[in-house]
Amino acid sequence: MDPLRTLWETFFDWESMREALPEMITVGLPNTLILAVTAALLGSALGIVLAVAGISRTRWLRWPARVYTDVFRGLPAAATILLIGVGLAPLGMQVWGPNPYPLGILALSLIAAAYIGEIFRSGIQSVEATQLEAARALGLSWGEAMRMVVIPQGIRRILPAWVNQLIALIKDSSLVYFLGLLASQRELFRIGQDYAANTGNQSALLLAGLFYLALTVPLTHVVNWIDRRLRHGRPATAAAGDDPDDLDLALPGAAGGNQR
């Protein structure tokens, strides 16, 4: 028996993949997207609250935000999902019945919020205080200065980190399988795993992997494109003939922050 051939058949058995494909597309993909996108929205909303609390001058806002961030960033995602999914199950039972799905989303959101909060906080803090000062010196109000000058720069700087978090979320969403989902609730990983367990062939799991890559790889390229666009303006307004890439280092807002 040729070991290479065995390896090939274990991972690239087209028949197994074809069998798993319809459920991947109709069940797994939608569930993965629902889990990741919902958790991204909830996590970002809570993340903003954490970011603002984290830079507050009030100790009673700053302190809980820091503790929250430390705890949810410090625990393994699997542990958090289990703790919340199982620990809050009796409570969830009363609210939406015996359905682990919302608790899975909640757990993913709480984890994401800890990371996203730190991302937002660093974004706001990375914009030099002198930008606010310059805007105020022109006569803009604090709100206008934040809206027109500080926040647009802060968002630009955190966008790559934020999308990285979305990528992590897409991958972490596979962990909700711990909570024992209904057949119709299974996400990509779980479906791949089920097929692999039933057939003894790993090809369906590899197919799930390809689905994850199809989601995450384009995202990284999208963010790079947005990042370039935000830094240099629309292609039409960029200085003609300039190669945008060799100007990155000269930008005050470029990643890695400012020399000041």
């Binding site: 930008q131 000062e133 010196a137 803009l140 027109m148 000058v149 720069q153 303006g233 307004t237 000041r260």
Partner: peptide
């Protein structure tokens, strides 16, 4: 008051996410 008083800074403090023209037209 600040509309009556122009200020120029050591580090220029132009808004890097706007064109030169927009830096001026904003205010």
């Amino acid at each position: 008051l600040r509309q009556r008083i122009g200020m120029v800074f050591q580090q220029f403090n132009l808004f890097p996410h706007m064109s030169v023209l927009r830096n001026i037209t904003l205010a």
